[in-house]
Amino acid sequence: MTPQPVTILLAEDDDGHAQLVQRNLERAGLLNGLLRVRDGQELLDCLETRGGSHEQTLDEALVVLLDINMPRVDGVEALRRIKANPATHRIPVIMLTTTDDPREIDRCYELGCNVYVTKPVAYEEFIDAIRRLGLFLQIVQRPRNGQS
């Protein structure tokens, strides 16, 4: 069974971080399908226009990489809304943020995030985290319709 190509939706307000994530995901072999938005609102809008409210869109494999500190709608709120919406709640969400506050991590897991990755300041660790994320994303199987 060949893994389905996934589209990665990256919500990140910091251009530099977005660039680093993108470069290293490319290095890790995930060369296509990265879409970047600048805040939570944009992410939700994007999911909406992609037909997140309709079942048919779930054909397309989708993973969300979500930063927490963003203007307008922040990552935690975006996570809450994704998981509260029946049309989008099955989309895997990976929190990717600089914060390692345990309360924040707990909160995200409570809201239903699938993975929580702290952006390490040390570059090697950061790259490593992204690489492992890339490997992880390669094997992500989007559940098919009616298969949950």
Binding site: N69, T98, F126
Partner: peptide, 15 residues
């Protein structure tokens, strides 16, 4: 911790 880390990640990363 968050706001200082954010540019530090960039510094380290792009460095």
């Amino acid at each position: 911790s968050h706001d200082l880390r954010s540019p530090l990640v960039n510094l380290q990363g792009f460095g």
